[in-house]
Amino acid sequence: MAFAFKKRSNLPGFGLALGYTVLYLSLIVLIPLAAIFLRASALTWNQFWHIAASPRALASYRLTFGASLIGALVNLVFGVLVAWVLVRYSFPGKRLFDSLVDLPFALPTAVAGIALTTIYSPNGWLGRPLASIGIKSAYSPLGVAIALTFIGLPFVVRSVQPVLEDMDKELEEAAASLGASRWQTFSRVVLPTILPAALAGFAMAFARAVGEYGSVVFISGNMPMRTEITPLLIITKLDQYDYAGATAIAVVMLVVSLVLLLPINLLQKWSSSREEKAAGLIPERIEL
């Protein structure tokens, strides 16, 4: 066989399986993605900059990244809390809530979008009480942040949960027996152990939120310069047959998502190495 780059194996079918994988990947993903860069390369640097850094585009980046950051931060705090409660405590309905955490992955974004908009619109179940105390939720940047909190909700929970499940309680008992208060034990022993997983979840929630479209367009109100997210700006430009404009902004988004992959991968690696350590650490220490 000609595959010198592969370790010897007795199983058949490597050439066929790899060939099909690479072919299908190229046809569906790689070549189409390359097309966008090809298209963008037709623009001069000045043209590109003029579109990508126009005031309207900058306003959309501010909203998209700002609201994504807020959503991811809310999910970081509450995700750790939810994971902790689901792993450590028992209460009625726990298994149901545990399964429902994944709903934002399973519910189509358009359905989430119209549901959240109806809840937070000025006449909605929560929109009306909020409006009565002077808070505009739907059709404002706050609404965008609410939608992005919803779609990023499972990431931190599902990333922290297995780490907490595998974590040896001995660590905490050791801390407690050495005189640490419960809060000290949590902040100095538990938190450092789950931190990499929590940050990985945070980064994934942020990355997902930056590209999100369906759940946001209904609740945001879509006013240029105020509540227009970047993905919507791309669609607006496409609807005006401004292909160059849409491409330039899409390239910005694509580069951001590719750059975000790096910290996500690093955090996941850090998390799994930390997890292994936490599981294997205590016996060694106590043997001393």
Partner: peptide, 18 residues
């Protein structure tokens, strides 16, 4: 894994450009 990191809007756009 790449398609998971690409915004859905950009995913549609690449086929329009092709």
């Amino acid at each position: 894994d790449l398609p998971f990191s690409v915004s859905p809007v950009v995913s549609g756009l690449i086929y329009v450009l092709l």
